[in-house]
């Protein structure tokens, strides 16, 4: 169990440097890039992905994956929206987000962990089921023009900073402390590293996995509250592509998709870099249709820098993934 949370490792430095280079480059080309309003716009657009990425980091950390997160946010957003419509007030509605997200996380966790179905297949199936649920819950219409109760709370600036940022920071801090300083955190990494070894060392592997999916659900739910506060609208297509974006950002950040290695700082930087590039490219006049291409190239390039260092050993990987119960992998 030698795995540790890497704090500031190579990848984080690389991403940090990439962010700074992108900032410099864009501000040289476009005079509007480095303005307060634009920076705030970029940060604002990061919110949901920050939170969903946080949950995804924990899920990948235990060696799982969840491709349904975007729609989970959608379902939670409907709960928040309906409560706002029913005049439940900002506090109750805002808290309903993480609560609903947590409940859906329980469902996901049950299917994946109790059903012992490979996470990618199970969550692919759930993606379809949840989409149908979104449609049912919306009944064909949109939630639009929702009351501004939540907006005035979550959208309000504190000392000039949108209140969302400190909330996101606190969420990251909580997860960081839990992972670094509690037995549970150790168990998460142990499980991700090698399920069998973790089990042999007395870790309740399935409880750890279960908890990870619930945490991810809560993060999606929190994202939903911010989503509603900002957009005051839920359409049927909500969150459709968010899951792949979140996975891309988390992988960029240096979290291993095989589990056992996670970097919260990396995730935050990955999200930031993606959004800076999307914003900057539009500012310098590249049509928005090219944005996915840049995301893809970035993913291949950054991950490609690890090429040939033997981090991915296909042979041990196959054994690592084999069911039932994973056998030990060299990490």
């Amino acid at each position: 169990m030698g795995a540790i949370v890497r704090q500031i490792g190579e990848r984080e430095l690389l991403l940090g440097a990439a962010c700074i280079v992108a900032l410099l480059l864009f501000s040289l080309i476009s005079p509007y890039f480095l303005t307060a309003t634009n920076i705030l716009t970029v940060l604002r657009n990061c919110n949901e992905l920050f939170l969903i990425g946080l949950g995804m980091t924990v899920v990948l950390g235990i060696g799982g994956i969840d491709v349904s997160v975007g729609v989970v946010m959608g379902l939670a957003a409907i709960a928040v929206g309906r409560l706002l419509q029913a005049d439940a007030g900002p506090l109750l509605s805002g808290l309903a987000g993480p609560l609903a997200g947590g409940v859906i996380g329980l469902v996901t966790a049950s299917v994946v962990v109790l059903g012992r179905i490979p996470a990618i297949v199970a969550t692919l199936g759930l993606f379809g089921v949840y989409r149908a649920a979104v449609f049912l819950a919306l009944g064909g219409a949109w939630l639009s023009g929702l009351p501004t109760d939540l907006t005035s709370v979550l959208g309000a600036p504190v000392l000039g900073i949108p209140v969302a940022l400190p909330v996101v920071a606190i969420a990251y801090l909580i997860v960081f402390v839990v992972i670094r300083h509690t037995p549970f955190g150790l168990h998460v990494l142990a499980t991700g590293n090698s399920e069998v070894k973790a089990r042999l060392s007395g870790v309740s592997v399935r409880r750890v996995q279960f908890t990870a999916y619930v945490i991810s659900g809560i993060c999606c739910g929190l994202a939903a509250s911010f989503y509603i506060a900002t957009y005051r609208n839920v359409a049927m297509t909500i969150g459709g592509t968010l899951a792949l974006e979140a996975i891309a950002a988390v992988i960029l950040g240096g979290t291993s998709i095989l589990g056992g290695r996670m970097s919260l700082l990396g995730t935050a930087l990955g999200v930031l870099l993606l959004r800076i590039l999307q914003n900057g490219l539009l500012l310098v006049g590249v049509p928005s249709l090219w944005q996915p291409v840049v995301t893809g190239l970035l993913l291949i390039l950054v991950l490609g820098t690890e090429a040939g260092r033997g981090r991915f050993d296909a042979a041990s990987l196959t054994r690592h993934l084999r069911r039932p119960g994973r056998q030990g992998a060299a990490g």
Binding site: Y32, T37, T230, A235, T237, I238, G239, G240, P287, S288
Partner: peptide, 20 residues
Amino acid sequence: QFAGGSAERAAQIAGDMMAS
């Protein structure tokens, strides 16, 4: 600029457009 079918992408693009 094209946002696909999602409100959040439309908001992101519109925000970027006003900034630039």
